[in-house]
Computed example of a mutant assay.
Amino acid sequence: MFFEILPNEAAQLLEEDKHVSILDIREAGEVAAGKIPGAQHIPLGQVLTRTEELDPNKEYIVVCRSGNRSSLACEWLSEKGFNVKNMAGGISNWTGPIE
């Protein structure tokens, strides 16, 4: 089970909690156009084969373009025991900084 978080809530949580990270599951071309600073990038198709790169003690806010693919990634990762939240509306609704 996982929850959704709004982009403004995600930005606030990132400022307050050092145990929260952004996991960007978009494709490389999408990420090249800009990502949330410090976000870890693992494309959706590689998420389940690269879980060893994720810290089971952290909370992850999972991001894609619109929130649909990240919802699927959250489903998969929560089944594997990871603490994840889907960022509703994806990077399209993000108003914070982009790198």
Results as ranks from 00 to 15, higher is better:
Ala39Thr: 10
Ala11Pro: 01
Ala39Lys: 02
Glu15Thr: 14
Glu16Thr: 14
Gly90Val: 02
Thr49Pro: 00
Asn57Trp: 05
Ala88Ile: 02
Ala39Arg: 00
Asp55His: 07
His41Thr: 09
Lys18Met: 10
Leu6Ala: 09
Ile61Asp: 01
Ile42Trp: 14
Arg69Tyr: 06
Glu9Ser: 07
Phe3Arg: 14
Leu54Tyr: 14
Ile61Tyr: 13
Lys85Ser: 08
Met87Arg: 07
Asp17Ala: 13
His19Ser: 14
Phe82Glu: 06
Leu77Lys: 00
Gly90Gln: 04
Ile91Cys: 03
Glu99Gly: 14
Thr51His: 05
Cys64Leu: 06
Gly38Ala: 12
Glu9Gly: 02
Pro56Arg: 12
Arg50Phe: 12
Trp94Ser: 08
Gly81Leu: 04
Asn8Arg: 10
Arg69Val: 03
Glu27Pro: 13
Gly29His: 11
Lys80Trp: 04
Asp24Leu: 13
Arg26Pro: 11
Ser70Lys: 00
Thr95Ser: 14
Asn57Lys: 15
Gly45Asp: 06
Gly45Thr: 05
Ile98Thr: 15
Val63Pro: 03
Gly38Leu: 12
Asn68Met: 08
Asp24Gly: 11
Lys35His: 13
Pro37Asn: 04
Asp17Leu: 08
Gln12Val: 09
Glu79Asp: 10
Ser21Tyr: 04
Gly67Pro: 03
Ser70Gly: 02
Glu79Met: 11
Leu6His: 10
Ser78Trp: 09
Arg65Ala: 14
Ala33Ile: 06
Gly45Met: 02
Ala32Ser: 15
Phe3Cys: 07
Ser66Asn: 10
Ala88Thr: 11
Gly45Ser: 13
Glu99Trp: 04
Asn8Glu: 10
Glu79Gln: 15
Lys35Thr: 15
Thr95His: 11
Lys58Arg: 15
Leu48Trp: 06
Asn83Ile: 09
Thr49Leu: 09
Pro37Arg: 01
Lys85Ile: 01
Ile98Phe: 12
